[in-house]
């Protein structure tokens, strides 16, 4: 089980208080009409699914109901950073490598 820091409640809670929404920083295209079917389809369906560092949106569903970003290592499950939606992704590199 993950233990996740909620940047709004400012405390660490169990994973079951949260929903994982999916990959973060996928901005909805501003003018969808100008996109080809293929480009729109890539926005809708294509995700990176990396091994290693992955930026995700989580919602503190049981708590403050806020969405925020989590930088999580999909291999070790280590959570390297938690930051708010409007914040820039931090530059985190694996301290072990």
């Amino acid at each position: 089980m993950l233990r996740i820091y909620c940047p709004y409640c400012e405390s660490v809670r169990d994973e079951d208080e949260f929903h994982c929404v999916g990959e973060a920083h996928i901005k909805r295209p501003e003018r969808p009409d100008e996109l080809s079917d293929q480009a729109w389809g890539e926005y809708l369906h294509f995700r990176t699914n990396p091994r290693g560092e992955h930026r995700e949106i989580w919602q503190h569903a049981v708590g403050c109901r806020q969405h925020f970003n989590v930088l999580r290592d999909t291999e070790s499950y280590e959570i390297k950073s938690v930051y708010r939606i409007n914040e820039e992704p931090p530059n985190v590199t694996d301290p072990d490598t």
Binding site: C9, S11, R13, D14, D16, E17, V62, G63, C64
Partner: peptide
Amino acid sequence: CVLTTFAR
């Protein structure tokens, strides 16, 4: 005061 899970 804390919003959390009680009995799931």
